[in-house]
Write a protein that binds this DNA or RNA. Structure first.
Length: 504
RNA sequence: GGCCCCGUAGCUCAGCGGAUAGAGCAGCGGACUUCGAAUCCGCGUGCGGAGGUUCGACUCCUCCCGGGGCCGCCA
């Protein structure tokens, strides 16, 4: 999706040329406000020299409202300079759209489910799960903003060998004994032993609490134990074959490298088996797209999950598995081996105690999900003060201060005369927002948000430094520019689950 | 052996076919009697290597080198 003010120019150019035109912001300011390579792209198709097509395009551009000047540059670029009226149009668009600016980019809205975190309830959430939580929740926020109906699910693995071992560990503590050799050792095991009741339920309650603190709200909690009860019914609906006494799903038909056992020769289902009733539940809830957010160590699941979708008669393409690379912990520059069973981990709650939700979510989202991430435990607090999140929040708070001082005086997106360079840069930055959000959504790459937020803050701070807002001739226009900037910053941060403070 | 991800500035990273590759941090030097200095301004011969596709490649393809992860009738 593109801002309307830009899209209007693109359409005007495209209609004149008969080929699609996309405008982009050149890195060199001498190349104008916007530029297009459409002539270069059209040259092979129309079998004409690019410079000739560019000249045609320049003529069309010159006649468009909002265009002050158009120029051709070799080997065939067309560079546009825009007039104050265009800037007024672009700024009015931001303000008119209000909180919805940049939203609703989905061509067709869907019912989407995002399953994420789904950490085993054998211990508190760790920083490893935190990346999953930050990434998955931001994906969900982006999808909602694009117009989809989104459900967030946490799948609780409350059955199986690890859970048995966990319960045994707590029971041993309750009897005053040491946990089993491979059992769970962390301090929290002792805490749970001091309480009555099922430690798994208590652990789930704590995980829920930590997630809420992290501003992640799950709509649905599904338990593996419940899925086991409807396992036979679900397995009866898919085609399995027998070999070596076991029952297999032909996952290779959907791209897996080998078929998978669903029911063992002794009649016990594998771990994989419960994914069948589990996914059936998701489809039965009416979802049209299923998203799973998994760590890189689970990438082998992609084909299996798609296979289940196919076996259940659904389109495997509607199952999307988002893989993020893992978080490595270091301490004083040395790699730190972690094991939840040994209790040798950094819990999300500890990280939040140290650096707070905003800095944590920002940091976890600021790198591509395809990039492995390192968190230095010792430097976490020190780095906090240098976290760019505060730079961005400061810009928002500064604007809030100006608006407080303005005491409700009128604002207007229409500039009186020519804009200063810093004003033009800021308006163009705000006009980028719909494209940035739409691309972040489509690519499932929320790390574009912090990058963009820094640029907006950057442009605003420069504008602020160069120009006075209140009591200036352009007060009304600059107040409008401030309001629009604050709204865009607030929305960008919200899509990351980060707050936009009025004061700091 | 097969599969997934990554090699870009001293460090952590953006960049998803365009013009002179950008931020943050670290370092050095400047700027407050004015709406918040948690700010602004200046200082940098960097895309792991070799081929290929293209008018144009950090970006796409192949191979090589280096780092991380995964390949169970475990969960």
């Amino acid at each position: 999706m593109t801002a309307k003010a830009i899209a209007r120019l693109e359409r005007g150019l495209a209609d004149g040329l008969g080929v699609p035109v996309e405008l982009e912001r050149p890195s060199n300011p001498e190349h104008g406000d916007y530029a297009t390579n459409a002539a270069l792209r059209a040259a092979p198709i129309r079998r004409m020299p690019p410079m000739e097509i560019a000249e045609e395009l320049r003529a069309v551009a010159s006649a468009l409202p909002g265009v002050k000047d158009a120029a051709v540059a070799p080997p065939g670029f067309v560079n546009l300079q825009l007039d104050p009226a265009w800037y007024g149009e672009a700024l009015a668009e931001v303000l008119d759209a209000g909180a919805g600016y940049g939203g609703g980019s989905a061509a067709e809205t869907e019912k989407v489910q995002v399953e994420f975190v789904s950490a085993n309830p054998t211990g508190p959430l760790t920083v490893a799960s935190a990346r999953n939580a930050a990434y998955g929740d931001s994906i969900a926020r982006l999808l909602e903003f694009a117009g989809h109906t989104v459900e967030r699910e946490f799948y609780v693995n409350d059955a199986g060998a690890q859970i048995d071992l966990f319960r045994q560990s707590v029971d041993a503590r309750r009897r005053g004994e040491e946990p089993p050799p491979d059992g769970y050792q962390g301090d929290y095991v002792g805490e749970l032993a001091a309480l009555d009741g099922d430690p798994v339920q208590e652990m789930e309650r704590r995980i829920r609490q930590t997630l809420e603190r992290f501003r992640v709200h799950m709509d649905l909690w599904v338990h593996q134990s419940e899925m086991e009860e409807v396992l036979d019914d679900a397995l009866a609906r898919i085609e399995l074959y027998e070999q070596d006494g076991a029952r297999w799903l032909k996952t290779t038909s959907w791209g897996d490298d080998k078929d998978r056992v669903v029911v063992r020769a002794d009649g016990r289902p594998t771990y994989f088996a419960v994914d069948v009733p589990h996914m059936r539940l998701k489809w039965d809830r009416g979802h049209e797209r299923l998203i799973y957010v998994l760590g890189a160590d689970h990438h082998g699941y992609i084909a299996r999950l798609k296979a289940i979708a196919g076996a259940l008669g659904h389109d495997p393409e509607a199952v999307e598995v988002l893989i993020y690379q893992l978080v490595h912990l270091t301490e004083g520059g040395e790699a730190r081996k972690v094991s939840k069973r040994r209790g040798d981990v950094v819990f999300l709650d500890e990280l939040l105690d140290e650096i707070g939700v905003d800095a944590a979510r920002w940091h976890l989202l600021s790198r591509s999900h395809d990039q492995a991430m390192e968190i230095d435990v010792d430097l976490a607090r020190e780095r906090t003060e240098k976290n760019p999140v505060y730079y961005v929040q400061y810009a928002h708070a500064r604007i809030a201060g100006i608006l407080r001082n303005a005491e409700g005086r009128p604002s207007s997106p229409e500039p009186l005369g020519a804009l200063a360079p810093a004003e033009r840069e800021l308006v163009k930055r705000l006009a980028e927002f719909p494209t940035v959000v739409a691309e972040a959504t489509e690519r499932r790459g929320p790390h574009a948000l912090p990058t963009y937020a820094i640029r907006v803050a950057d442009d605003f701070h420069r504008f602020y430094h160069d120009h006075r807002v209140l009591e200036s001739e352009e007060e009304a226009f600059r107040l409008a520019l401030c309001r629009a900037t604050a709204a865009v910053i607030a929305r960008t941060l919200d899509l990351m689950g980060v707050e936009a403070p009025e004061r700091m």
